Deep mutational scan, measured.
Amino acid sequence: RLIESLSQMLSMGFSDEGGWLTRLLQTKNYDIGAALDTIQ
């Protein structure tokens, strides 16, 4: 599930440099909407 969510976020133009996006998705239970809300 992480790989699916991460690949979708990467395709939106986000980077996972340093693993920050992986950690964010894990804390949000791989919910892309919740991750995007946090980023904004």
Rank of each mutant, 00 (worst) to 15 (best):
I39M: 06
Q8E: 13
S11Q: 13
W20N: 01
T22I: 10
F14G: 02
M12Q: 02
I32G: 00
I3D: 14
T38R: 06
T38H: 15
Q40N: 15
W20V: 06
G33T: 13
L6R: 03
I39Y: 06
L24F: 06
A34M: 09
L24Q: 01
I3P: 07
L2G: 05
L24G: 00
T27F: 11
L10I: 09
G33Q: 15
L36I: 12
L2A: 05
F14T: 03
I3F: 13
R23N: 11
L10R: 05
T38V: 10
L10W: 06
D31L: 08
R1L: 14
S15M: 10
L36R: 03
G13T: 03
G18L: 13
S15I: 12
D16S: 03
K28I: 12
I32W: 12
R1I: 13
A34K: 11
I3T: 10
D31S: 07
W20L: 03
M9K: 01
F14W: 08
E4S: 12
G18M: 07
D16F: 06
G33N: 15
S11T: 10
G19R: 04
G33L: 10
L21R: 00
K28A: 15
K28G: 06
L24P: 01
S15C: 10
T38L: 10
L36F: 09
M12R: 05
Q26M: 14
S15W: 10
I32E: 02
E17M: 09
L10N: 06
D16R: 00
G33R: 08
S15L: 06
G33Y: 15
D31T: 02
A34N: 07
L36V: 05
D16G: 01
T22Q: 08
L6A: 01
S5K: 11
A35G: 02
G33H: 14
R1Q: 12
L25W: 04
N29R: 05
L10A: 08
L10Q: 09
Q8L: 15
T38S: 15
L2S: 04
G18Y: 09
E17G: 06
E4P: 07
L25M: 01
L6M: 09
D37A: 14
G19S: 07
L25R: 00
T27H: 14
G33V: 15
L21M: 11
L25H: 00
T38E: 14
G33P: 10
G13P: 01
L24Y: 02
T38G: 08
I39R: 00
G33D: 13
F14A: 01
D37S: 14
S15R: 10
Q8K: 06
D31M: 07
D16L: 03
S11V: 12
D31P: 03
S7Y: 13
A35T: 14
T27N: 15
T38M: 13
T38W: 15
K28D: 03
K28R: 05
G13Y: 02
Q26V: 14
L25P: 01
Q40G: 13
T27M: 15
A34W: 09
M9R: 00
S15D: 15
G33S: 13
M9F: 08
L6Q: 00
I39P: 04
K28S: 11
Q8H: 11
A35V: 15
A35N: 05
I39Q: 01
M9I: 07
E4M: 12
I39H: 04
L24N: 00
S5H: 03
F14Q: 02
R23F: 13
E4W: 03
E17H: 09
W20D: 04
Q8F: 13
L25N: 03
I3K: 14
Q40D: 10
E17F: 04
D16P: 01
Y30P: 04
S7A: 14
W20K: 03
S5Y: 03
I3N: 12
G13A: 04
M12D: 02
W20G: 01
E4I: 07
S11I: 13
I32T: 06
L24H: 01
Y30M: 03
G19A: 01
Q40K: 14
F14M: 04
R23A: 12
I3S: 08
T38Q: 14
L25I: 05
M12S: 05
L10Y: 11
Q8M: 13
L21K: 00
A34E: 10
L2Q: 08
L21W: 03
I32N: 02
A35Y: 06
D37W: 13
Q8N: 08
L2K: 06
R23L: 13
L25T: 03
Y30N: 08
T27R: 09
E4K: 11
L6F: 06
L36H: 02
D16T: 04
D37M: 11
S7F: 13
S11N: 09
S11E: 12
I3V: 14
S7D: 11
A35W: 09
R1K: 13
L24D: 02
M12T: 05
M9Q: 00
Q40P: 02
L36G: 04
L6N: 00
Q26I: 15
L2V: 07
L6G: 00
N29M: 10
S7Q: 13
W20F: 07
S5W: 10
S15N: 13
Y30D: 02
G33F: 15
L36S: 05
S15A: 09
Q40L: 15
L2D: 08
T27W: 11
D31E: 09
S11F: 08
D31H: 07
M9P: 00
G19F: 07
T22G: 04
S11P: 01
A35M: 05
M12Y: 06
